Simulated scan of single mutants.
Amino acid sequence: MPKITFDQVAKSYGSVEVLPPFDLALDDGEFTVLVGPSGCGKSTTLRMLAGLETLSGGEIFFDEKPISKLEPKDRDLAMVFQDYALYPHMTIAKNMSFALRLARAPKSEIEEKVRRVAEMLNIAPLLDRKPAELSGGQRQRVAMGRALVRDAGTFLFDEPLSNLDAKLRGKMRAELAEMRDTIDKNMVYVTHDQVEAMTLGDRIVVMSDGLIQQQGTPEELFKSPVNKFVAGFIGSPSMNFIDGELVDDDGKTWVHGDGFKLPLDLDISARMNDVQTRAVTVGLRPSSLTTDISRGAPIELKVVVSEYLGAQSVLVTRCGGADVLVETQSTSPVRAGSVQTFGVLTNEIMIFDKASGLRL
């Protein structure tokens, strides 16, 4: 399995620059997730790696070997597409073995690999059927199986679960996570779903407008986002943002805003000493607000909507002109329209520059 390196890789369509020059290194045996909103360049990056798009600049290396001039079939890659891309006139067994038959592999080897992968994906009873006779989830397993039987060094996944309903997507996500732990291969996975990214990735690369915003483990991105975009994109429910102003009062640093005044912890206050701007954006995770006001700084919020989710509820509240999400236990129902006092865990407050969006 090669170490994959993007060296000043760029992509343009005519005069339109889709991906400015960027560097990225993917470690051997790593499950890397490229995540971001539609149009951020993640699928284009994957397609350049696969050889389905030409580079406008830079080079891609497998270990120390440049591969941008190689044909897709010569890159030791297998790809799973968003739309399954199965041959409708072939049985599942023939769909899965197509690449091996093109390579003229021995029949016994083909049958053994197809059987082994089909058993791993729980589709062994379906091998004699055709794609039209399968459900969406079964077709997606076949598409994955077709890639796996190739036994390539690197597997590429281009939003493979986006066509499935929510329940099936969750089931397939769990199966992918199990497969990741049993197959020691490079895997590069593209998605716009941050839940998939957080649950599957050894490392997540967050992209926006063709730029890599941040990369790291799921925990690093959740706890230490470098800017407002990453903080808002990673985590579910998403982070709350409220505009405010830094104020020094009574020997402490506070953040003031429409409808709130919150003290900053000493370590956060110390970081604010060198900050020139006073106009900031406060970032609060929904889990950073609690109904136990003894645990944090008090803040009054008007409850607009209470979304009951079973063991938990998500409250949509209002602070001045901003909506604020609060995660609570469902044991104590909260009535919509009421004004409630919550405790803010001040050690979990994040402060962002209002103009640039960078975390201070």
Rank of each mutant, 00 (worst) to 15 (best):
E17D: 11
G29T: 09
L34A: 10
V35E: 06
C40T: 09
T45E: 07
G58R: 03
E71P: 04
Y84E: 10
L86M: 12
Y87G: 08
K107A: 13
I110H: 03
E119H: 07
P125D: 11
D128M: 03
Q140T: 13
G153M: 01
T154A: 05
P160D: 12
S162K: 09
L164G: 08
D165T: 06
G170D: 03
G170A: 14
M172D: 09
M172G: 11
A174N: 11
M179Q: 03
Q194Y: 07
A197I: 03
G216W: 07
E219C: 07
E220A: 15
V226D: 00
A231I: 00
F233S: 01
M239A: 06
D250W: 00
F260V: 09
D265N: 11
R271M: 12
A279Y: 04
V280G: 02
L284E: 02
G296A: 02
G296V: 01
G296S: 03
A297H: 05
E300S: 15
E300I: 10
E307D: 15
Q312L: 10
V316H: 15
G320Q: 04
E327T: 14
T328D: 08
F342V: 02
F342D: 05
L345M: 14
N347W: 00
F352R: 09
K354Y: 03
G357H: 10
R359Q: 10
